[in-house]
Design a protein around this nucleic acid. Structure first.
Length: 669
DNA sequence: TTAGGGTTAG
């Protein structure tokens, strides 16, 4: 630099400053040392660098040192304050401005929108002496970003009426608002209007259109626009199309595009992983995450981890979950509220309420979801009073309970047998919804007040859904009220004729009373209606891996050992005289599987595997999809009695601990 | 050569 002339030296500083960004401080020191600190051009640029990279206070110092400030300087400083979240300082400067232009006003609109203060943004917008297309776009964008799609569309209509011609950016924002509404009629009207106004479709507009069509139910149109983009598609277009497919559960098409993508970014991975996680394919979600971590094409971020943590939760895979937590720490992935919320969910689902509560307590700020997740966790484990306490705490902290909170608390009361408290909560709900009624029917039913439950159903202001009658049916089973069970089941056969669970429950109720003709009648109805007993995979976590089993499955590497163990158990059971038991369970097994006492239900395969791999006397962790149906329950009881081992089984939300043939469970059985 | 608005994942 020593060889350069003075003039060219000064010219080079602004360019250098912008390119170095974070080391601007050293450069600034150098500039001052060289005596160029007074140059207007250099100083303005330097201020711009501090506005962008901070500290914002230094930018302000430079601003204050300016002898003649132009409106540009004021605007720079104001938008700088906004981008650092300093709304108060931005407002102060705006009030002090000797003259404002449309850019100053627009910066204020954008600033308030960024701080989610739409009221102030709109106030400034309405007060503007003149508006530009950018001002309109800023306000529309503010509404859209903060989830006020209706307002955005309304303002857009107003804008068109007042004679402004929308530009590409306007279209992008209006299309985006339309997407979040998911309304095909609105989407159609917008497309028509764009056509009439001869809207210019640039890349952003086309991508936004793909998203809108995908979200408004027209994947074909979305795909057509996507294909027409040709070979030079950027990752945003690919990602939009991929999530369009995952949203409707078409994971095959999504994966196909994902594989074909030339360059995947973090959003591509996140879309695909979330796609699996949200469509019940938790194991695939985790597998893909592991692939992502191995290939290192993109670095996983918080959004990735939220999907993965929640997938672990759904699987009840605690060992894996802890590994993921470790991964987050090692890779220094910063978690926000939603990240912590997903951890609460995972620990709750894995039955570790202590850890769930610990995460909750360590959070600096919590939202309604944090509370709801922990409350729902307590509910699932029958911790009624903890759930109630938490609801009071959230009110104290100024967070209003919502419908999910009430469902959680009522369920907690129900599982914890807190009748009085539950009734009190229910009475406090301003406008109880059908789900809240279902919870109350469950609560009344479980404590044995079945007639009261039936009365409540009759008094409901809306028509009861399957959940309401499902609760009644379950309570009727527990308290052996065949009359009400029949009533509930018959309603359920109308409401959800294909749900095999209802038939099975009623059939089991008859069976427990020895009413075999009725059992046969229900089974016949099931056969005639073409209702198939639903089967699913059962999962066991062992050695940090998930093992899955399904009826009749022989794909597991230890399959022959598993079947051998089952055969041995069968023999032991016969020898122990269980064959003579005339309970419905054995009858069920005998009829359906003829030979095998312990059949090849997915649950039984999973339990046999767990028995196989566990040390004698250890606790076996059986997770996910072990619907502890009646016959499975009996089978585990027998196995635990025969083998003298303790078995802990997780039903969807409950834990059952079997030891020496006895089941201790926090729920009614 | 400094000031305001744009698409995807939770």
């Amino acid at each position: 630099m020593q060889n350069c002339g003075v003039r060219s030296d000064v010219c080079v500083y602004p360019i250098l400053m912008k390119s170095v960004g974070k080391v601007a401080v050293e450069l600034h020191a150098h500039v001052l040392k060289m005596g160029y600190g007074c140059d207007v051009y250099v100083r303005n640029t330097m201020m711009g660098v501090y506005v962008k990279y901070g500290p914002i206070e230094v930018a302000r110092k430079l601003f204050d040192e300016m002898s003649e400030k132009t409106v540009v300087d004021w605007n720079s400083m104001i938008s700088g304050y906004w981008s650092w979240g300093c709304g108060v300082e931005a407002c102060e400067l705006f009030d002090l401005m000797p003259e404002r232009n449309v850019i100053s006003w627009t910066a204020m609109v954008t600033g308030f929108s960024k701080m989610r203060d739409l009221k102030s943004a709109r106030r400034v917008f309405d007060e503007m002496p003149e508006k530009s297309i950018v001002s309109w776009n800023a306000m529309i964008s503010g509404y859209d970003k903060n989830g006020f799609a209706e307002e955005a569309i309304r303002l857009f209509t107003e804008m068109v009426k007042s004679g402004f011609q929308p530009n590409e950016i306007t279209w992008v924002k209006v299309i985006s608002s339309c997407s979040s509404r998911g309304d095909p009629c609105l989407a159609g009207a917008l497309v028509k209007m764009m056509d009439e106004k001869r809207a210019h479709l640039n890349y952003f507009v086309k991508t936004a259109l793909i998203d809108m069509h995908a979200k408004c139910g027209s994947l074909e149109t979305a795909r057509k626009i996507f294909d027409e983009l040709g070979v030079h598609k950027n990752s945003v277009a690919w990602n939009t199309m991929i999530s369009g497919y995952t949203r409707v559960g078409d994971l095959i098409s999504a994966k196909e595009l994902f594989e074909r993508m030339p360059e995947k970014d973090v959003v591509s991975w996140n879309s695909m992983i979330a796609g699996y996680a949200q469509n019940g394919q938790s194991a695939r979600a985790i597998e893909l995450f592991q692939e992502m971590a191995t290939t290192k094409e993109s670095k996983p971020d918080e959004i990735t981890m939220v999907s993965v943590i929640s997938a672990c939760g759904h699987l009840g895979a605690l060992e894996l979950g802890n590994w993921v937590v470790n991964f987050i720490t090692q890779n220094q992935i910063k978690l926000s509220i939603s990240g912590y919320n997903s951890l609460i969910f995972m620990y709750s689902k894995c039955g570790c309420m202590k850890d769930a509560r610990k995460v909750f307590q360590e959070m600096a700020t919590r939202d309604v979801v944090s509370y709801n997740t922990l409350i729902t966790g307590f509910a699932a484990h029958g911790h009624g009073s903890e759930a109630l306490e938490l609801m009071l705490k959230m009110k104290d902290e100024g967070i209003e309970p919502d419908r999910v909170t009430y469902i959680g608390v009522l369920t907690a009361c129900s599982h914890g047998g807190l009748l009085e408290e539950g009734c009190e909560v229910f009475d406090s709900i301003e406008d109880p919804e059908v789900d809240h009624y279902a919870c109350m029917v469950d609560l009344l039913g479980r404590v044995g007040k079945l007639d009261k439950a039936k009365e409540l159903i009759e008094r409901m202001p809306m028509s009861p859904h399957a959940g309401v009658y499902g609760s009644l049916l379950n309570a009727s089973r527990i308290h052996k009220r065949t009359d009400l069970g029949e009533l509930a089941a018959n309603k359920l056969f109308e409401l959800e004729p294909q749900n095999s669970g209802n038939y099975v429950l009623l059939s089991n109720m008859y069976a427990s009373r020895g009413r075999w003709e009725d059992v046969e009648r229900v089974r016949k109805a099931m056969r005639q209606g073409g209702v198939k007993k639903t089967t699913g995979w059962s999962w066991v976590e062992y050695g940090g891996k998930m093992h899955k089993f399904i009826v009749g499955d022989r794909s597991h590497e230890r399959s022959s050992d598993i079947y051998q163990l089952l055969t041995e158990l069968r023999k032991k059971m016969r020898a122990a005289g269980y064959i003579a038991d005339k309970s419905c369970v054995l009858r069920d097994v005998e009829e359906e599987e003829k030979e095998e006492m312990v059949g090849t239900h997915s649950e039984k395969l999973a339990i046999a595997f767990a028995l196989l791999v566990s040390e004698a006397g250890s606790v076996i962790r059986v997770v996910k999809n072990l619907r502890v149906c009646w016959d499975c329950h009996m089978a585990i009881k027998m196995i635990s009695a025969l083998e003298g081992k303790e078995i802990i089984v997780r039903d969807n939300n409950r834990f059952h601990s079997f030891s020496k043939g006895q089941c201790s469970c926090n729920d009614y059985w």
